[in-house]
Simulated scan of single mutants.
Amino acid sequence: MDINEFLRSRHGAARTETLRKAGFTKRALAKAVNDGAVARLHRGVYTSADADPDVVAAFRADGLLTCVSAARFYGLWTLGGAEEVHLSCSTGLARRRVVHHGARLHPDHPYLPVAGVADVLIHALRCLPELDALVMVQSAVSLALLSTDFLRSKLPGNRNGRIRETLDLVLPRADSLLEVLAHTHFTKAGLKVQMHVDVPEVGEVDCLVNECLIVEIDGGTHLEGKQVKKDQYRNNAAMRGGLLSLHYYYADVVHHPERMVAEVLTVLRKREAGRFAPARYAPGWVPPS
């Protein structure tokens, strides 16, 4: 493996110590720099031309990526990137366009300048808006990287009360960030929400709201022809079983949750008022079964 291949496996940057352990001699490193194959960021750190900017920023600040800036290195969901780099720096000194987080209490990433997943999530819970932190924690739990009980044990006391309330919103199972967001929005609106319910003749549905309204949270595959037909047949089966059905997409759940919740409440209120009850046609208008 040449030095650029090795650096690419480290997102484009590594310390001298790491490179030496991988078999690259001092002479080989000097030659790579002279040939322009790699650059020396500063004493003890080498980078490739295509190095990850966040990784480079971490090495330059002598810190570790954390919070939302570390999410992608663990495969965690996020609602968007950050303009600033979130770092835990050994010096704690403020830097331009850097959000500094506190000390780390758990093992760091084994070879990248990234904080350990436990510290990443604790920092996110203390730093980010509730929903942004929630989806990160939910994905970590879904990936079995840690548990909410573990995080609760690390967040004692009154000052962490709000954070522990966020952990209460984590689901035992969520197949996408849209599901956890929809569940949170419906729950906060005072609705009874059951996730991943097996409905007779319909199959598993994403949400069953107030035991009468199916809400499906559809991704891109639901726009494909075969899936559209399958969804329509599922809707028909739900109607035969006396259940109403609504469908929402990414933009609805992430960008317009208030409108989504308002529509759900409208349908539920109309059902309660009898607007979806059997029509008062003359007897015999509908043939007997």
Rank of each mutant, 00 (worst) to 15 (best):
M1V: 15
R10V: 04
T16M: 09
R20F: 13
F24E: 04
A30Q: 14
V33D: 03
N34E: 12
A39H: 03
S48L: 09
D52Q: 07
D54S: 11
A58R: 02
D62R: 08
L64T: 01
L65D: 09
L65P: 12
C67V: 05
V68C: 10
A71N: 06
A71H: 06
F73L: 10
G75W: 00
L79C: 07
E83D: 09
E83G: 07
V85M: 04
H86K: 04
H86S: 02
H86W: 10
C89D: 03
T91H: 08
R97Y: 09
H101G: 01
G102C: 11
G102Q: 07
A103S: 11
G116C: 09
D119Q: 11
L121I: 01
R126E: 08
P129F: 11
L131I: 00
S142L: 00
R152D: 05
N158F: 11
R159G: 02
E165A: 12
L169I: 02
L169H: 11
S176A: 10
E179C: 02
E179H: 01
V180R: 01
L181I: 07
T184R: 12
A189D: 03
Q194P: 00
H196P: 03
H196D: 09
H196C: 03
V199Y: 01
E201G: 00
G203H: 08
L208N: 05
L208Y: 13
V209D: 13
V209M: 14
C212Y: 01
L213M: 04
E216Q: 15
T221G: 00
T221V: 05
K226T: 10
V228D: 01
D231I: 01
D231P: 11
A238G: 14
L246Q: 06
H247E: 13
H256R: 14
H256Q: 14
A262I: 02
T266W: 08
K270N: 10
R271P: 00
E272H: 07
F276L: 14
Y281L: 14
W285P: 01
